[in-house]
């Protein structure tokens, strides 16, 4: 259960871009989470809501995009998506593969409310 510390790191990054957020300024935070990053999406959402609940970021939505595991075969060069944990090329069966996507854990974007909305 390291989603809480991951949520705190995300919040830390948000504060670097929006140092003193007022209520209703940050609409959402977009995060990419690879399927191999050992993050439970529901748990991360829960932790983010829990640590922002009593702050001006209450209501800011954590939008999580789950990225599939993509591998590239060193033998036949084909790029494939894999679902099961056996890391072999579905095309030729070779197990000399490179993971090209699926381990990501990054903050992509912070979306702010339009100023007009803020004034309303």
């Amino acid at each position: 259960m390291h989603e809480l510390s991951v949520a705190q790191e995300i919040l830390g990054i948000v504060h670097q871009y929006v140092p003193d957020p007022k209520p209703n300024t940050v609409k959402s935070v977009k995060v990419s989470v690879g399927k191999l990053s050992n993050i439970l999406v529901d748990s991360l959402t829960f932790c983010f809501e829990a640590i922002t609940g009593d702050t001006p970021l209450n209501g800011t939505k954590l939008e999580i995009i789950e990225l599939p595991v993509k591998i590239q075969c060193s033998n036949c060069n084909k790029v494939s998506e894999i679902d099961d944990p056996v890391f072999a090329c579905p095309n030729c069966g070779d197990n000399k593969i490179n993971i090209i996507s699926g381990t990501e854990l990054k903050v992509d974007e912070i979306e702010l409310f339009d100023e007009i909305k803020e004034q309303q």
Partner: peptide, 11 residues
Amino acid sequence: MSVITVERKVL
């Protein structure tokens, strides 16, 4: 809508 591009690793 205003979007800040971040593109940073969480860890």
